[in-house]
Every structure is written in structure tokens, then in C-alpha cells.
Write a protein that binds this DNA or RNA. Structure first.
Lengths: 301, 301
DNA sequence: TAAGGTTACGGCGATCGTAACGATC
DNA sequence: GATCGTTACGATCGCCGTAACCTTA
């Protein structure tokens, strides 16, 4: 048994059990891959893969169980390399952040600016995606840290830290009936609503609030980002249900923002990263920076 | 990086960082070990060991952190081999049990007999030792399963299962003043007591019972095994404080046994084994056999 | 016939062993 | 001088790459 055989098993999973593509990924010829797999299976004494003719079509029970250990080994191997690199120089490296539009636009600018001041040598890559995709990015190790509000609690292999709590707010054009007076869910339900796509930015808490009262929301537009919502609110398509922090007093003066704290449960934006996975010092620092900024953000709101 | 380098780091720890002995253990010459260590440190870019001249005298901060990952990899590697061997043939193998005298003599015979009926091909090795030593045996992977009453709860890297609950009892010669009448801790404290050595067979609960009342125990003899205690009770050296199940009606008729359930808190005998460590099917079966026997044992008592 | 996998064989390089040397007690 | 570790060098064995071959869509 050796580490390249362990690596091979990982790569095979990532290539749909295709030996040729696995060979490419590992920068060796296909016959070498074929042989190493045979050697490994021979050493263990039983096949790890189900075969149809010569093709690999799936894992055996044994293979399935062994893949768990393989994943552990690969994680630890990567960790060793990361730890050593970090020890040599913790001021350079790459930080992959995966997040949603709302966080990227309204929350991250401050912590990222502060982070860059402290670690100018670290390159930052940001990926914008849906919460499900963020988690996939983490699992595929294409992102180091994910920041979002939804979904992340459901995965046992993620470390999740609460960053800040926020509420939804209503935005309407000036003169709109909802721009004054008491707001209730009943009154809200009478209007066309523009809000986030399913699975984005606390949409689930909105659903919950309305489901609990038995009221039905009339969602005319569901967008992944707040700017689209604001745009169509300005066009008079309906009322906007957005994250409070996405209302920007300096550019949104033409819109009236109404507090909904009493109507819709709060949402919590979280930071998530893989368990058992070493994060360089600068990444750890970025997380504390996020938590700090989260605190400040929460107080402001 | 390769698996033998990882293995080397483990072996080095086990040999007090002595390259020569590590080489022996790995069945290669010392110069090869020296070179592999250099190569590995060079690959990581910083030394893993503190050196005094050429001698290794300790781990660096980096080395310390990396050793954690190394342990993980070695565990997973062993698991792979165990899982595969188990898959090939789960009826043969070796089961290393580490336990205390009391368990070995009064509890284990039944579950072990039943286990051997089901797995005649599995060789059983039993080691008798003190609870601390049992745990060392687990950590050194010289034992697969430890069965005892004390200590095991204190280790986070062990899986601990409760097996059965039991009480201490008093054994005295016939005609002894304590052979009749009400027993209290106060009355007990008037006599010389023979019981288990510190750290054995629920000795800690005895301590606790007496410490709580402020009474002082006069322990004339502390032994690791019940038979020694009984022997000296028969010689009239004092009263015996033993585990209830260690009183054997068929051979101890000359002794009077008195229940102490109301005086001394109960003890729990536990099964412990390493976390993140694969146990062959037969070992898993042995554990269920132990739990079954523990249940029966508890009812009987 | 293209795509995926296996088998055979020669060459190269990683790693080992031998051996001589250096340091430390 | 005994113990422990390093360095140099030749030999070996493992692993890769080339290439021919087999199988199935």
C-alpha cells in the first residue's frame, strides 16, 4: 500500500471510475493506473470495485467502507502539507471564499478590506453561488470557507459558526400604501411580493412565517440578488422583502424601508468550513475578522 | 511523502526518537532511516525534530502538530488492512483482551465460552493488569478491548460502553461480630479492612463513601485480586470488602457475605476500545456477547 | 471504430545496503 | 571506544512509459 494508490482511489471517485481520466489527472499513463489498482486490490485480497467486463461500474461493499478510510488519509495528507507550508510562511497563499450575493455585497467588503490590510500577500478568490453550490464547493475543496444563511446546518462534516443575526425588511416605493401604518402578515399578503429565490438569504424563514399563519404569499419575482428585487420594486411590480442590511440609505432614498422584526423570525448568517481540515493561519484570521465584523454588523442593525 | 515515511515518524516516537532502534523495528538499515527523515523534512521545508548535535531530542512545534495527522494516517492505514482481512475471513484472527483479575475470574468465563463456540478459529489472548496499564495497552494497540471498572471514562480517545452495574459486599468469617445485625459505615470503620488496591475494582467508590462521611478506613491489606483478600479474611486479619460477584457460594461457604448496597455507591464495569479504530466482526461480536452477559450478570446479582 | 481496459517488456530512478566517516558521551 | 547519526556509492527493485492487444458500445 502506498499513498499514490490511496490518491488513485480518490481520483477514481472524482472521475466516475474512469481509469483513463484518472490517469490524466494524475499525470501518468493509463496502464500504470490499471496496474496500481490491480496491485492494491491483490494486496487487500478482494476487489474494491464492481466490474462489468473490464469497466468499473461501482464500489463493492468492501470498497465503500475502505473509501471512508481513504478519505481520512487524503485529508490528513493534505493537512500535513498545508500545516508545513503555513509554518514556513503564513503570509502568502490563497483564500477561496464561497458566498451568496447578499453577503458578498453587503457584509463582506469590510472584513475583506481589513483582512487584506493584514495579509496583503494572500490572494483572495471569491465565488458567488447558491447555498447548495457553496457546500459542494467546500466538499470538492474548491472553497475553504463558505458564508451564507441557509443549508449549512444540515451537514455533519462541516464546522459551522454563527456570524450575525439579522431580520428581513420591507421596501416599497414612496407613497405606497405600505409605506405608512401598521404592517401585519395579513396586510402584506394582499400585495405582490418580490423576494429571494428559494434557498437564498433567509427565504426559508419567510416561508415559515407565512406557513405558520396559513396565509399564502404571492411571490411575483424571486431573485438571487437584492439589486434585482429593488429594481423591480422601483418599477412598481410589488413590495420587496429583502434582508435589512441590503437597504443602503445612501442610494435607496427613493425607497421606504419598514421593519419586519415582529413578523418574520430572524435569520443567522453562518461561516462554514470542512471538519478535520486544516485552515492556514490567515484563513483562521479571516474567520475571526468575519466574527468581529458580524458583531459590529449586528449592533448597527 | 509516502507511507513509509509516515510510518517512520510513528516508530520514532515509539523508540524515543532513536534512529537506530527505529531502523531495527522497520527492518531496514539505519542509514536508510536517516535519509528518509531528511528527505521528509526537506520536502516539508522545516525540521520536525529538535536536535542536539545530530541526536533527536524532541519534536518542534511543527512536528508536534504534524504527529497528530501522522497518527490519523496510521490509524486509517491499519483500518484498511483490518477491514480487508476481515472481509476475506472474519472467522480467524486474534482477539486481545485486557482486563483486571476480578473481571477475568468472575465475569468473563461465560461470555468467553460463548464467544469461542461461535468463533472457534479466533485465538484469544488475555492480559491481566491494572486499569492504567489496560489503557496503555489499548493505546499501544497491544489490546483490542479492555474490560474494567475504573479510569476508562477519563480518556476522550476511547469508546466506553457500560456493561453491568454491581455493588460491593462484606465478607467475614462465621461468628464474626459483623456476621449478624445491622451494618453501618461507622460500625465498619471499627474493624481492620481488607480490600482492593487503589485504582482497582471500584476501590474509588469505597473511598468516596467513607470520605463523604468523614470516617477513616483502616485498610490493613490492599490486594489486586479477591482471592488474596478472602485468604486473609479466613486468617482473621479483618473484614473483606469485595465485589459482590466475587463471592462464590460453592467455595466460600465458610464466609458470611453481607450486602452493602445501602452503604457504598454502585460501580459500573465498562468495555473500552479505541475510537477511530476498526474492530473485526468477531471483536464486535465479542462486545455484544459481553453486553448480553453483563445484563444477565446484573439481574442475577 | 472509438473508447476503455489489460498485458508484455524495457528503461529509469527511487531507495536500499555496505562502508567509511563524524560527533558526542 | 561505544553509541548514534551522516555521507558516499554501487546495486536492486519498483514503477513508469511505450506499444500491442482485447473487449464492448
Amino acid at each position: 500500500m502506498n499513498l499514490s494508490q490511496i490518491e488513485l482511489l480518490r481520483v477514481l471517485q472524482e472521475t466516475n471510475l474512469n481509469l483513463s481520466r484518472a490517469a490524466e489527472k494524475m499525470h501518468i499513463v493509463q496502464s500504470a493506473v490499471s496496474r496500481q489498482l490491480q496491485l492494491f486490490e491483490a494486496e487487500l485480497g478482494s476487489p474494491l470495485f464492481e466490474r462489468q467486463g473490464k469497466k468499473l461500474i461501482g464500489l463493492t461493499a468492501l470498497g465503500l467502507r475502505i473509501m471512508e478510510e481513504v478519505a481520512t488519509i487524503n485529508r490528513a495528507k493534505n493537512n500535513i502539507q498545508m500545516i508545513a507550508a503555513d509554518y514556513l510562511d503564513s503570509n502568502h497563499g490563497i483564500l477561496h471564499i464561497a458566498t451568496t450575493h447578499t453577503q458578498a455585497k453587503y457584509f463582506l467588503p469590510v472584513p475583506i478590506r481589513r483582512f487584506r490590510e493584514k495579509y496583503p500577500g494572500v490572494r483572495i478568490y471569491m465565488v458567488q453561488a447558491s447555498p447548495e453550490q457553496l457546500i459542494d464547493q467546500l466538499h470538492a475543496r474548491k472553497a475553504d470557507i463558505a458564508i451564507c444563511t441557509e443549508k449549512v446546518d444540515e451537514f455533519a462534516d462541516l464546522v459551522v459558526e454563527h456570524c450575525y443575526e439579522w431580520h428581513h425588511a420591507l421596501v416599497v416605493p414612496q407613497q405606497h400604501p405600505l409605506s405608512v401604518g401598521e404592517i401585519s402578515l395579513e396586510r402584506l399578503a394582499e400585495f405582490s411580493v418580490l423576494t429571494y429565490s428559494f434557498g437564498y438569504t433567509g427565504r426559508s424563514t419567510i416561508e415559515r412565517a407565512f406557513k405558520d399563519t396559513g396565509l399564502k404569499l404571492d411571490i411575483t419575482l424571486a431573485a438571487a440578488d437584492t439589486d434585482v428585487i429593488k429594481t423591480y420594486v422601483r418599477l412598481g411590480m410589488g413590495v420587496g422583502l429583502i434582508a435589512r442590511m441590503a437597504y443602503d440609505a445612501s442610494v435607496d432614498q427613493d425607497l421606504v424601508v419598514r421593519d419586519l422584526t415582529h413578523l418574520i423570525p430572524s435569520s443567522i448568517t453562518k461561516i462554514a468550513y470542512l471538519k478535520h481540515n486544516y485552515l492556514p493561519l490567515y484563513s483562521q484570521h479571516f474567520i475571526t475578522e468575519l466574527l468581529l465584523a458580524g458583531n459590529a454588523f449586528q449592533c448597527k442593525a
